[in-house]
Every structure is written in structure tokens, then in C-alpha cells.
Design a protein around this nucleic acid. Structure first.
Lengths: 115, 115
DNA sequence: TAAATATATGAATGTGTGTTCATATATAGA
DNA sequence: TCTATATATGAACACACATTCATATATTTA
């Protein structure tokens, strides 16, 4: 049985880190946010919306995926507060909610390209 | 049956967006990276390592989780190239690989706090 | 060399999630 | 009002994944 599951090795370090870390709830929110970006389909939708607002139909066409799959993922993006939409007759146009999203994406993008 | 799964509504928009979007492989990499950040345990480990390098034992102690669970997640972080480690006797000290990680985290963090 | 400790890892399990399929809803036009 | 089209959504299914459990490996110390 492992000793270290009950006792820390460096109590002082652990205490210091614990005090300086953000509260758990905050970190959970951060993970939740990144999780939304952590899907191929969703990141492609976001990437597309950087260029132009788009209707569901066109996104499905662009990504060669079913309309249903796109709708479901747009729902996730909407619930995360990343996209907004405007209805115009039969079609619904989606766009990004703010440009902070672009900054988050760019940081990730530059990380994978700088290698 | 939906018409829009075969035909785009705005061909011109779709074409323009397609041309300006990054290649699929790149976007897959970006999603993969964000997915690593998109887990509560991993984001807490990363957040802890911002403060100090730490051994597996202390991380487990800090997060009140099993040593095994932490080891498994450190493996994921290592495979993603986010952490490095140094062995010192029986203990292994993990630390962040570069400070780009901090910038990515900060963007996500400020997004969830600015609400 | 034997015992203790820190870490790593494979298998199993339960849970989460993305897509599909079928269908419902909403709007426009005939 | 009936039909066509664009979108939304619930259920089902397959797959991914995080943790646990048992155990292996590595290193130190007695």
C-alpha cells in the first residue's frame, strides 16, 4: 500500500500551492470551457464562424456532416455561451458571441503550429 | 429528407470560408490540445504546476486523489508534450514544459471569470 | 539481499459523449 | 390549407475515457 496517499512528502510545498491555486469551482469552469473546444467538429464550427456568420445548412455542407450532428453541436456551443443566433425566415444564422473566443483559439492554434 | 444536406444554401459563402479555414489536420490538433485541458483533474494538475514543480505523491495529496489516477493523467499530459519530469531517487518531479501553457490557461481562465 | 516506498501500468468498470435515426417544430410558398 | 424546406430534439448506439484495483518496476535503506 502506498504511503503517499495518506501523507504528503513535502507538506510545505503542498500547502503553499494549495493557497495560491484558484478555487476548485473556477477550475471546473475552465475545464468545462476547454472541453467545449476539445472536439473536432466544434472547433471546426468555431473556426468557420471566425470567417463569417453561417446557417446550419451551410455549416453541414462545409463540414460534410449531417444537419442533425451540426445542430446538436451548435446547441453545445450555445449552452456554453460561445455562439448566438438570429432567425431569418426558415434559416437560422449562427455567429460567435465575442472575440475572446478568437484569442483562446489563437493561443491553442499557435501552440500546435509552433512545433 | 433535408435538402440542405446535399446542397449548400450560400455556395459562395461556403467556398470563401473553406478557402480561408486552416487545414483539417491542424484543427484536429487544436481540438486534441484543448481536450487535454478539458478535464478537471488535468487542469488542476496544470494549475498546481504553475506554482511549483511537484512529485506525483504531493499532487495526489493536494488533489485528494489516488496516486494511480494522478499518474495516469500525468501520462496524458506528458504525451501531449505539456509536462516534463526529472527523477530524483524514488521520487519523480513534474513541471510544465513551457510557458505557452500558461497563456492558454489564462485565456480560458479570464473568460470564465469575466462573466 | 530483503523490505519499504514512489511511481508506472494493464485490465476492468462505469460514465460521458458524438453521431445517427426518426420525428417534431417553424416558416415560406403554392 | 397543404407541401416543401430549415432547424431542433429525443432516443439509441457505439465508442472514448477517467478512475479503481491489482500488480509491476525502480530506488533507497536496513
Amino acid at each position: 500500500m502506498a504511503m503517499c496517499e495518506r501523507t504528503c512528502i513535502h507538506q510545505d510545498v503542498v500547502e503553499a500551492v494549495r493557497e495560491r491555486m484558484p478555487p476548485d469551482a473556477r477550475l471546473d469552469d475552465v475545464a468545462e470551457l476547454f472541453k467545449v473546444f476539445g472536439d473536432t467538429t466544434r472547433i471546426k464550427i468555431v473556426s468557420a464562424l471566425f470567417e463569417s456568420e453561417m446557417c446550419v445548412c451551410d455549416i453541414a455542407c462545409l463540414l460534410q456532416m449531417s444537419q442533425s450532428a451540426i445542430s446538436h453541436q451548435l446547441r453545445v456551443l450555445k449552452q456554453a455561451g460561445l455562439v448566438k443566433y438570429v432567425r431569418q425566415g426558415k434559416t437560422v444564422y449562427y455567429s460567435l458571441n465575442d472575440d475572446h473566443i478568437k484569442r483562446i483559439f489563437d493561443q491553442g492554434y499557435s501552440h500546435v503550429t509552433e512545433e
